[in-house]
Design a binder for these strands. Structure first.
Lengths: 207, 207
DNA sequence: CGATGACTTGAACGCCATCAATCGCTGTGG
DNA sequence: CCACAGCGATTGATGGCGTTCAAGTCATCG
């Protein structure tokens, strides 16, 4: 894994801080670095010429992103909140890969994990309705960032919408509806602090 | 590449024929074999419990499919038309990979190419309208199977619809509209023999 | 020929987008 | 401390794009 690799200090690396909304790299830019989220959250997206946006993934602490096989980044990456990331020069990774065959294996595994996520997301984007999309989103985030059953979503409704292929209003409506029906609870008045009350029910809604 | 690998006969392999509509492997089945299309066409899809279908990719001659990193297939694959495929036992591939580091590289490259296609398709599914989706589909197929500017589509309107996240009626309507506007021509009365008359125009529609 | 299956075309509906107003929290300055 | 601006989120009203339902057309094949 990259983490292991970094800890072995076989590669040059450093930690960087990105403030909220900062662009980390841009689509079609040379991919000179690879990143691992230490703290915070990152979104990767593609744009159409008229500004329509599709977020391909959210990257949370521990996740690696910006790993390309070609020379150019295929997404634009931005910090959703104040984020610190571990940055590794790609060349040093390449060098290690040449000497350590197991590393290529690791890269392959990471890429395959990526692929799997994206393939499932295609099914969601192409064939699920808004209810199912939002339920699936909540379950995904529940699994990834629930600390003691309280999710602190770093992303806005617009980000969620652009991840699910919906409008932000539809996301909001579905969340309200799920709240009304008792699937979840908003902590205090915080709209991004969510407690899942009925994960099994959400899974039912999603299927 | 797998082709090279096969031609070197370092692995056990053979050719198989699949008749129209045959299932080649099923999602969640053990992935014991890897496939390369020799002739014909294959579709890979996922299903929701109620039968809604999302086709993740069409595989045409030369394409490799069924390559998994985990032990299970992530899609169901079916022959769209009479298809012959080269079938390779996965274990033999694994064996070669262990001795030949360059092979892992090849696998990584293939996986990354896959990833790239799927990432672009996410943008299409999540953010493009029906016109743009159909235009993009025509351009993709134009690039992949145009022999002298005549495309012989192996797949039905339903397949196209399930690839683009649309209904088959919408696909049909958009094709008719593109025909009316002079972007394409149907050969004779064959609805699957298409001549692209204005690829640049289609690219404009897609963007 | 009649049957079948793929495709097209039409009509009506419905889901979700769009437009718009309001709410609620936060931070800032008087 | 309060007024107010500003931003994100919610909620409501309306409309449109694409789905669904339903004929109808066309080619293929028994």
């Amino acid at each position: 894994m990259l983490r292991k690799l970094v800890s072995q200090s076989k590669v040059r690396s450093g930690e960087f801080k990105y403030s909220q909304g900062t662009e980390i790299f841009r689509q079609a830019e040379p991919a000179d670095y690879i990143y691992q989220v230490i703290e915070g959250a990152v979104r990767s997206h593609k744009l159409l010429s008229d500004g329509r946006r599709q977020i391909g993934a959210f990257h949370l602490p521990g996740d690696i992103f910006g790993l390309e096989n070609g020379d150019l980044h295929r997404f634009t990456a931005e910090a959703i909140v104040e984020t610190t990331a571990c940055v590794v020069k790609r060349q040093s990774l390449e060098r290690v890969v040449k000497t350590d065959p197991a590393m290529v294996r690791s890269l392959l595994t990471m890429t395959t994990d990526n692929l799997q996520h994206v393939e499932n997301h295609m099914l969601l984007l192409g064939r699920k309705n808004s209810r199912e999309k939002v339920a699936a989103f909540l379950l995904e985030m529940h699994g990834r960032l629930a600390a003691a059953d309280v999710m602190a979503l770093p992303m806005s409704r617009r980000d969620i919408a652009d991840y699910l292929g919906l409008s932000l209003e539809t996301v909001s409506r579905e969340l309200s509806e799920l709240h009304r029906k008792g699937y979840l609870r908003f902590l205090n008045g915080m709209q991004r602090q969510i407690v899942i009350l009925n994960a099994a029910g959400l899974a039912e809604l999603d299927r």
